[in-house]
Amino acid sequence: MEVQSQLSKLEGVNASAWKVAKSSDGTPVAAPVHPYLDNPSDPIIAWRKGMKIEVEIAVKLRQDLPVRTDRAYDRDDVEAAISEAYLGAELVWSGISEGGSISFLAFLADRLGNMGYVRGPALPLAVLEPGSTFPLRLLLNNQVAFDAAGQHPTKDALTWLCDYANNPFRPAAALRAGSIVTTGSLCGAIEITDPGDVSINLGEQVLLNFAVRSL
């Protein structure tokens, strides 16, 4: 985490957006998301060979979730700290060719392979209900890459956020009010084989469009 922090400072990362995940041994971890694009009109993310996309739900915290030593956060505590939910897309690419398979700690230092995040339209908070599924359609360069029911891998979008909130070794400054936290992919990780246009449709009306370009 210290190496991750130093690398982020060198790159000028503004840690207002985070992704939460689990290490290979089940430890809750997090990494700052960079670049973070907050619902811009014509977002563009740099494309890299081997880049993948994960369609996710992101949440915004209305209040701090400080490290607790007296008792654990339960799910209701964490849900009560959330003010908004959004459709989002994370772009994943690691400078480590083996990703996390050789050294998870090195992968963590590399911000868990994060290469950018595009925050899209707001969603009703009901999308956070455990067991929720969503009609999800992902187009890459007008070709269908995913068209099925989207669901968080644990069947609860708040699982990894709750676990991380209860990690006593996380930085004291993590999970502050106003932070955006991504929750995990609804469709797995899908490779973007070529630069081009990305279009995401969640349900009947929620759309997110952006481009990945060779910059």
Rank of each mutant, 00 (worst) to 15 (best):
E2M: 06
S5I: 04
E11I: 00
E11H: 05
E11M: 05
E11P: 00
V13W: 03
N14V: 11
N14H: 09
S16Y: 05
S16K: 09
V20Y: 01
A21Q: 00
A21N: 00
K22D: 07
S23H: 07
G26R: 08
T27I: 12
P28V: 00
A30H: 10
P32D: 07
V33R: 01
L37C: 09
N39H: 14
N39M: 12
N39V: 07
P40K: 09
A46K: 13
R48A: 08
K49F: 03
K49D: 11
K52T: 10
E54P: 00
V55C: 01
Q63V: 03
Q63K: 09
L65I: 10
T69I: 09
D70L: 10
R75S: 10
A81P: 02
Y86E: 04
G88S: 15
L91F: 15
V92I: 15
V92T: 14
V92F: 11
G95M: 14
I96H: 15
I96S: 13
E98Y: 14
G100M: 12
G100Q: 14
L105W: 12
F107I: 08
L108W: 13
D110T: 05
M115C: 08
G116D: 06
V118Q: 03
V118S: 04
G120D: 05
G120F: 06
P121V: 01
L123R: 02
P135N: 06
P135G: 03
L139C: 01
V144C: 09
A145H: 06
F146P: 07
F146G: 09
D147P: 05
T154L: 09
K155T: 10
K155P: 00
A157E: 00
L158A: 06
L161V: 03
C162K: 06
D163N: 07
Y164Q: 02
Y164I: 06
N167I: 07
P168M: 12
R170L: 11
A172C: 13
A174Y: 15
A174G: 13
A177F: 14
S179H: 15
T182R: 04
T182E: 11
G184Q: 10
G184E: 12
C187A: 15
C187T: 14
C187N: 15
G188Y: 09
D194S: 13
D194P: 00
P195N: 04
S199R: 11
I200H: 05
Q205A: 09
Q205K: 11
V206R: 10
V206E: 08
L208T: 04
N209V: 08
